[in-house]
Amino acid sequence: MVQINQKITVAFNVNGGDVEIDVTPETALVDMLRDGLLLKGAKRSCDMQVCGACTVLVDGLPVSACTVPAFEVRGKSVTTIEGVAADDRMAGLTDAFIDNAAIQCGFCTPGMVLAAKSLLDRNPHPSEDEIKDYMRGNICRCTGYKKIVEAIQEAAQKAVQG
């Protein structure tokens, strides 16, 4: 008989600060962030890793927080949209989304911005095709993607110009 009642201590870094929180094994990362740490930027939407609304970065790589268990981030660094919003160095990217009207209802935006950040961190000068290829796992039902691609292009361009 398996003793199921189990608590796991998750010590990790979120948006630059160290935190420690107890969770059960089946707790999804998005629930630990939203309910445990009140970081509401990541949204549970499709709940099957398809839409990207729950995107957060773990050690710089985008993952679907709806499905990745919270215990997976022990000892790791998690970046949520709240961390991007508080980081002046990221203003070029977030401003580009605003300036290009790459937001309508805003539900997908945290995931879009984090996916774009992860792309630009690895590939500071992506082509339009590379942007579309990388971003194809993030779904927006309002803007039709064109403005999002343009926002990422502008952010990349402005980063070059300094």
Partner: peptide, 9 residues
């Protein structure tokens, strides 16, 4: 395969 988030995990 799938999308970048699934491939990372």
């Amino acid at each position: 395969v799938a999308n970048v988030r699934v491939r990372n995990v």
